[in-house]
Design a protein around this nucleic acid. Structure first.
Lengths: 342, 342
DNA sequence: CTGAAAGCGCTTACAG
DNA sequence: CTGAAAGCGCTTACAG
């Protein structure tokens, strides 16, 4: 005869079982979507769940199930817009299961060893890596050797021993360039991203491809190197505007650099987009806070993070049950978001 | 004789108890820092914990303790920099305890009722509210009536039935203005924040106070209204620069508007800070991504969120144990960060 | 396809 | 100040 230790009791499996006229086991099976339940039984249970407003107790599930999944989000310093999207995506997925999220910061000069130690100190089972960390082979190796599961987000070089969630960067960059071509631009500048991220090369390749397909020349004076920071976009845009004749459009490899290009254009007395079109990449918050708002490639960062977290959680579970882990590489859709800047 | 269901067993209270020669209960007491344990006993236990590398299982604690603390971060749309700081602060604190974090978005026109329903659907026990939601009396009332605990972050109007974590906004704004005065500025423009946030008025008051203290006139033409968005900063800065004579410094009520002011200054061909000094407020990521980097008031958003989460967790626990909840209002320190913009 | 029993690792409520 | 017992709400492993 159980005594009540808590004030406001929530319904439990036992309550649901009683109401549905089945055992607790069966309730558990329905909740966990096991296929072996007769649909008649399933329905009785589901209606009992609905009428009681039953919600499984995650702590009990974790304890009984012997799971305990901690996933770490390891970031160096993506823009805060990127980071908050990553966080929101992870949290949504993590809350649905009974996992825990920890966030770790990786300094430029933190060694792979140190990072792995930090992860282990926090008892992480798996690690979600956004760029540029997802492209650091040494770090990936070290984490893998430590027995942690890995999910690479937005990498161009998915590893055979890691999950990966990407978009088709080359296609996206090609589409964006084609959009500018379709608007009549023939001198289209390009600001490249940091070469330590594999996606950078893909974006440039897409740009070059589109020009080639359109029969336009690829002019090296119209290609400037940036490193994804606003600051680098400033310098790169200056260089591009110094070209003679100057470009009538600039496609930057991310929104921060595109925003910087807008600023430089304004300082040169140019109207955007009347005098020059400027497009970005990512569709982070800055794309809609600057004026004019940026035409950009929407990369579904939040969804990508959610998917990555989901893969990791399932992977940890499989690992736990000593089942083989299948490292899937998932590709999500991008979108061209046309706004006022070009 | 327990059979092993898991592969890699971590040490449990039983293991620690055995090694320390005490009961599991005593281990639990030590872990929970109960004062009633003899220090000799405590030390034996602690050394056993250390040698085994014991870490309590949060799921088991939550289950046995009958707790189950869910805290919701309810945001409308602070800048993503602000949001990611909030998230990081919450996560740090939440992970330390066995709470869960859910993030909810509140649209402009979501009614207080709907929001409360959403919170209840997610079984939130407590809500952390950043501006401007923390200043919405109707929403606060409704949440309170629903029996959820509230923590207001960065409000100027802490409620008697809510936790609050703030900085001294008026003092901070006064200090920043004094800094500009000390640099010899006599015509200092001000860009105000959205009047739906109580902190906005405090910042303006600090600005006016500093001018008064310095014997400088308060010129209404040098005060422009913004709403904390980059866009509004653009317009406000234009207005200020139209004043004759124009200001030699502008103090904006947040970094986004300060960054916008920098952009407008540049468009007017003005050098920052040679021709005009520009200062911000918050010290979010944009302060160091724009060029020149912004002199600003550092508001420790992450720490504020962490503290708020901590108060909420303790509050939920107290509530659970039917102990009285004491609504503390905590004030953290701000800092003037002098950089290149002014 | 469904169920009775045992156990996950901790804490509560009692004793002493 | 410390401990033996029971229980938190669920799932595993085994039967049938």
């Amino acid at each position: 005869v159980a005594r009540t230790r808590k004030g406001l009791q929530r319904p439990t499996v036992a309550d649901v079982a009683r109401l549905a006229g089945v055992s607790a086991m069966t309730v558990s099976r329905v909740v966990n979507r096991e296929p072996s339940v007769l649909s008649a039984t399933r329905e009785k249970v589901q209606s009992a769940i609905a009428t009681l407003g039953y919600e499984p107790n995650q702590a009990a599930r974790a304890l009984a199930g012997g799971r305990d999944c901690r996933i770490a989000l390891l970031h160096s310093n993506p823009s805060s817009a990127y980071l908050s999207e990553l966080l929101m995506g992870c949290l949504a997925e993590i809350n649905a299961s009974d996992a825990q999220l920890t966030v770790e910061y990786a300094d430029e000069d933190t060694s792979a060893r140190e990072l792995v130690h930090k992860l282990q100190a926090h008892r992480a089972d798996a690690v979600l890596l956004p760029p540029p960390l997802c492209d650091n082979p040494e770090l990936l190796q070290e984490i893998h050797r430590a027995g942690l599961l890995i999910a690479q987000v937005a990498t161009a070089r998915p590893l055979p021993f890691a999950f990966a969630v990407t978009i088709a960067d080359e296609d996206a960059a090609r589409s964006m360039t084609e959009h500018l071509v379709a608007r009549g631009h023939e001198r289209i500048g390009f600001i490249g991203g940091n070469s330590n991220q594999t996606a950078s090369a893909l974006r440039e390749r897409g740009y070059r491809l589109a020009l080639g397909n359109a029969g336009l020349p690829v002019t090296e004076a119209l290609i400037a190197q940036g490193d994804f920071t606003y600051r680098s976009g400033l310098a790169a845009a200056e260089r591009l505007l110094a070209a003679n004749p100057r470009p009538t459009a600039i496609f930057a490899s991310n929104d921060d650099m595109a925003a910087a290009a807008v600023m430089i254009a304004h300082r040169h007395g140019l109207d955007v987009p009347a005098d020059i079109s400027i497009c970005g990449y990512d569709d982070t918050a800055i794309a809609t806070t600057v004026w004019p708002e940026l035409t950009t490639v929407r990369q579904p960062i939040r969804e990508m993070a959610a998917r990555a977290a989901q893969l990791l959680i399932a992977g940890v579970d499989a690992h736990h049950r000593e089942r083989p882990v299948e490292f899937r590489h998932v590709r999500l859709d991008y979108e061209i978001r046309v706004r006022d800047s070009g």
